[in-house]
Design a protein around this nucleic acid. Sequence first.
DNA 1: GCACAACACGAGGGGTGCCTCACCTTTCGG
DNA 2: CCGAAAGGTGAGGCACCCCTCGTGTTGTGC
Lengths: 230, 230
Amino acid sequence: MPPERAPAATTASAPARPLRRDAQRNRDSLLAAARAMFAEHGMQASLEQVAKRAGVAIGTLYKHFPARLDLVQEVFAGKLAIWVATAEQALSMDDAWEGLCLFLETMCELQARDRGFNDFASIRLPETACLAGQQTRIHDLGVRIVERAREQGGLRPDLVPEDLAFIIWSHSRIIEATDGIAPHAWRRHLYLMLDGFRAERAHPLPEPPLTPEQLYRAMLRLGGADNSTD
Amino acid sequence: MPPERAPAATTASAPARPLRRDAQRNRDSLLAAARAMFAEHGMQASLEQVAKRAGVAIGTLYKHFPARLDLVQEVFAGKLAIWVATAEQALSMDDAWEGLCLFLETMCELQARDRGFNDFASIRLPETACLAGQQTRIHDLGVRIVERAREQGGLRPDLVPEDLAFIIWSHSRIIEATDGIAPHAWRRHLYLMLDGFRAERAHPLPEPPLTPEQLYRAMLRLGGADNSTD
DNA sequence: GCACAACACGAGGGGTGCCTCACCTTTCGG
DNA sequence: CCGAAAGGTGAGGCACCCCTCGTGTTGTGC
């Protein structure tokens, strides 16, 4: 267990100990290749394919990114930052309902453009991961966006932040199905769901929401820990 | 390409040429094992595991079911029949909206109880498959259920039968996420979506529905035909 | 321009899963 | 009770993927 990893500047010079020039070049190729592979094939894309696409041996990939998650996190750090920024913008809007729409639409658009991010949004990183903090931040912002929309009266009062997971998961599969066939279909689904989210004329729901623990466990599981039945 | 397959009595005596007793026994074990494996692990469960669970050699499995789809179809024929029967019942109800609810709730419940059926419901079988006709029947019944609910005024007028695929796909992922953690969570999501489906809550949708061709292609793709990017 | 640390390489061991086929074993009709 | 046909078997070929590590290469500071 390596006690620490350098903050890992994504492309440019690093402060601590600048990589050798060939190392930096390979690292960049790997990240570009991974970005492309993950976008096309999802977060589970073969690392050997990534290395091949980067024009680099598999051992080199493992030298730079000992675990798949190291690669995943560097690849998606940027999009996660966009997501966070959008959430902050959404919270700053006067109309909380419009803020919610902006938040969800941006989130779904990020998912739709990148099957890797689609997977990434559905899971929860282990607490030791360096992006775990950003994920927590998104979570907190989401809570506030939902609560504000509820308080302003646009959002139905029985809707809780955990319900947003339904949107993420729904989209995850809808995008898998329609990607390349009907690239904007997800938006129709989103607005159907949003109509279900509105306060006006809401009907009672038959089940309580997920508890935070249930949500956490579900997202962890989608991440990787196999709880098989054996 | 064998020109025909016997209608394949699921467990009992077959009319054409009764299987040898050991063969029948093995066949039944295989079906039981496959039912269990598919229910736990989805339609992609390892066939070698299925054979092992049935206490039978892998070659025997392939002798009875030369292609995975042969096994899948026999396993899910029963549930598909239940689905069809429910759809017919839904159509016979006076209140079309309640019919729609019954139809969707039963469908989702079948999905929730069986990860294999969850996958199965999301795909379209190739036209040569022996259950393809039943799938077409479900599709037709779904169309009539939706149209009737629209005509009676409960369902929003801009909702088309193809939109039901959103529910199937959504649930597919939600069940993957929450199975064993929050076993009824899917119902909350279903009723949120249903609120979005009601005529009284409709707001304009930003995208046209999937065309039947798009839907068909999307479901075919989830089935298996890889359209890779190479 | 040298020497050594940093790095790249890729064969190879381990795992999983698909599917086939040559060779036994069992059943069942006569 | 026998023998032929139906059926069962599982090693093995193939493909994929994971990850490691001993060896060879290259950049860089002096």
